[in-house]
Design a protein around this nucleic acid. Sequence first.
DNA 1: TTGAAAGCGATACCAC
DNA 2: GTGGTATCGCTTTCAA
Lengths: 334, 334
Amino acid sequence: MKRVSSVDVAKLAGVSQSSVSRVFSPNAKVSAEKRERILEAARQLGYKPNVLARSLITQSTNLIGIVIADVASLFYANFLSALSSQLRDLGKQVILFNVGLDQTADDVLPTLLEYRVDALIIAATTLSADMAAECAQQGTPVILFNREVELDQVSAICIDNEDGGRQIANLFLENQHRRYAYIAGIESTQTNQLREKGFMDRLLESGIDANMILREQGDYSYDSGFAAATRLLQADNRPDAIFCASDPMAFGVVDAARALGFSIPNDLSVAGFDNVPQAEWHTYQLTTIAQPLDSLLDATINVLTERLKGNESSKSKIDLFVGELRIRNSVRLK
Amino acid sequence: MKRVSSVDVAKLAGVSQSSVSRVFSPNAKVSAEKRERILEAARQLGYKPNVLARSLITQSTNLIGIVIADVASLFYANFLSALSSQLRDLGKQVILFNVGLDQTADDVLPTLLEYRVDALIIAATTLSADMAAECAQQGTPVILFNREVELDQVSAICIDNEDGGRQIANLFLENQHRRYAYIAGIESTQTNQLREKGFMDRLLESGIDANMILREQGDYSYDSGFAAATRLLQADNRPDAIFCASDPMAFGVVDAARALGFSIPNDLSVAGFDNVPQAEWHTYQLTTIAQPLDSLLDATINVLTERLKGNESSKSKIDLFVGELRIRNSVRLK
DNA sequence: TTGAAAGCGATACCAC
DNA sequence: GTGGTATCGCTTTCAA
């Protein structure tokens, strides 16, 4: 219950407090005999160095702030899981902020900055230029994950969402579909906007008549996909190819279609985005754009370590990855 | 880039450093005029109090350590999401450790303790008595989530897993099934052991012949459920009622059964455990035991705040909740 | 109210 | 190698 500090250990071991500190520092210079005595005393007292006090002087907390929109969403839960493991291997700890899907990171960043995090990783949401400037001024590197935003001093790791939309459009076109639909994610999110733009632009470029392209509003969730598909499929001009801004919505579409008696992919082609693990499930066999999670993570870790070292070459740069089309059985081919 | 401390603010505002500190303390006693001047100076310099330095003296970090096994698993992702939001509302920050499903919390706790977390929440895994004692000695409250372990000084919030197993057995029995199977989660986990025990005991108590009860080993994942079901259903003595230690395995079972041409629930009844959001999906309509997430969270937060206040009445106590049977369409009734 | 000064628990530079 | 001491940025008496 009573706190034990390096002074207590020093007293018990009969050495100076400095020596105790040295034993717990990576490049110690302590005689083997003293070191033993100190470690023994530490063990007896249950002593643990206080990293907060250490941070105060070293100016480094080994804390990485992660702000993430909707940890519970399938894709980001996987992302967080992998990322936090890798950070742990680097000796970094994660301090986590979960914000709403529609929220910005601005609200929570001040708190994170108060904890003097060594760096910030912001996923699935963005921050204002002002806040970016504030982080920069404090010398806190910011890495944006999955937002294509060009901000002074911040690094961005992102998949090419627009290209992903085009890839799906191409797949639909090559396999001769007639009427298309897009089910949107939360409208204000950039991810949604770019996926939609790529898909729509490609269809229009190829000469598809604009009124052969339908659109429904969703919110990335299964339920919203289910509802949107139900509306689309009960109308006279029902589509035979639906692209969803996220995999969960696509699952909803598949289920809704089957509930109405349609067969996938014979009557209806469905494609999603992200390639969450469920996309492989036997019922769905969903064609989708895979986020290359491993590459994205590697890039994130690389940029992070470089910026922590003070290397700023990745600053104000967007690192864009191409999504990989995963063709499964939810899209009619030929 | 250059750090700014309360001293800088004090200098600019022409006051003492103490006064600056007071302005940023909850129960300040500063004249309105001075306060304004200080706030203005702080704004100009971009000053933010350093919570680490504060923690050093207040002996409270407002950090809550959460260690969780497999953040990416459906149930725990939801748990983490809700929990972190609630903690944020309390002004607490989350420092997160993601460990492997088969790992213990012991390995990572020392690090967490070095950060002087105010409390620890350990989910889906357990810790040794020694480590529990160490936390207690340091005065760090420990709350175990979803492990029924009686440890000195630690509080536990848990669902009654054994009872859940019995509930499913009862449901199967009441609706006249003939041959039963249990698909296990990772064998070493307590959750799996208790769910299995409840299910098996109830079946045997009711006079079911032991060789009418099959068992397959899984690992909580969809794939393992799919594989186990494929084995079970291709054998001569195939079961007509399968209970899975987790929902994802149950989804795998449903898909495997359908792939083999069986109809759910006419040919086969399937039940899971946890009631993850996907259990409601139209394809699955999974009968399962719901973890009362809201109640569990409330209890967790309550115990946490009590223990932070120094109230120790919940120490060494297991708070057991009853899981709620959710009957959907994956089990044949009558 | 306000300012001076002690201390929280470490690191790092200094002689020795 | 070792110990003494200043310092990190704050909170908290204690006088004034």
